[in-house]
């Protein structure tokens, strides 16, 4: 689907599949996995990270205990909220856990919030600017590559803490014996494998699924008023209620992701 498509195609399926196509760089291969780079995911996530974390750093470096600015108070609210969450879920957490949770939350909230922009924003802007309709998805969290990247990072950390806290021998012993005892070792190992695979998968699939589904609903809403150029106008009006509802989903999904990451890390720290 690379290259140019006609602006606002006549069929709903063409409209939707056009919007689901990513801006990729590199050779496509057959299969559900590819080495081609999703440049739109990367660029949007980097831009939002730069915006969000530059602001955070700037405020934090200028933080003062007396007479704080309103932005600083907002950041402190975020910080103390996650500090409390981490304290409750994971007592004696290593110092990386709190920053990890905040990073996930802030980044994912920023990327998720791209969802409330009208689905044709980039398409129309690109068309007006260059005369062609680009395949560019604003919603980075509807890309499994990104959500799985976050989940796999968390998974790697749980693996690291499992071995750090219990030792390799202790960890393997736990894998073989929990929960049914040494006699049922194969079952235990199988269950543990499923559990360990399920953690990053559920983490990434939950975020991806929510945002992907939301995006498709936005596209369907936009196609309700599908008649030539009217999709762009219609999605402002009909998409608004779904976008307003989505304001709830955006921080909720980010919160679930970051708190589950803390929970998984806490589980890695405790012995069965």
């Amino acid at each position: 689907m690379a290259g140019q498509i006609t602006p606002w195609p006549d069929t709903v399926s063409g409209y939707i599949s056009g919007h689901l196509t990513r801006y990729t760089v590199g050779d496509e291969v057959d299969g559900s996995f590819t080495w081609a780079l999703h440049l739109d995911t990367l660029l949007v996530s980097w831009a939002l990270a730069a915006l969000g974390f530059y602001t955070l750093i700037k405020i934090s470096m200028r933080a003062q205990s007396k007479n704080p600015s309103k932005l600083q108070v907002a950041c402190e609210l975020l910080l103390t909220f996650f500090d409390k969450q981490v304290r409750d879920l994971f007592p004696n957490a290593p110092p990386i856990v709190g920053p990890l949770a905040i990073t996930i939350f802030v980044w994912v909230v920023l990327m998720n919030s791209m969802d409330v922009l009208p689905v044709d924003s980039i398409t129309t802007t690109g068309y007006l600017a260059t005369g062609s309709v680009p395949h560019f998805k604003l919603l980075s969290t509807a890309d499994l590559s990104l959500t799985l990247a976050l989940a796999l990072s968390v998974f790697a950390m749980t693996f690291y803490y499992n071995i750090k806290v219990k030792g390799i021998g202790g960890f393997l012993h736990e894998v073989a014996t929990a929960p049914f005892g040494a006699k049922m070792a194969p079952v235990n190992i199988l269950l543990r494998c499923v559990e360990e695979i399920a953690k990053p998968l559920s983490l990434s699939m939950r975020l991806f699924g929510n945002l992907f589904a939301a995006e498709i609903i936005f596209l369907l809403i936009a196609s309700l008023s599908f008649a030539g150029g009217a999709a762009f106008l219609g999605q402002w009006v009909f998409g608004a209620p779904w976008a307003i509802y989505h304001i709830l989903v955006v921080p909720l999904q980010a919160y679930i992701f970051s708190v589950l990451a803390v929970v998984y890390l806490a589980m890695a720290h405790e012995t069965h």
Binding site: L20, R22, T24, G26, E28, S32, F33, T34, W35, A36, L37, H38, T41, L42, S45, D143, L144, S145, L146, L148, A149, L150, L152, S153
Partner: peptide, 13 residues
């Protein structure tokens, strides 16, 4: 449908 891009995955990690 391309579900996963390894390069993107590594870049985002």
């Amino acid at each position: 449908l391309k579900l996963l891009s390894f390069t993107t995955l590594i870049g985002e990690i």
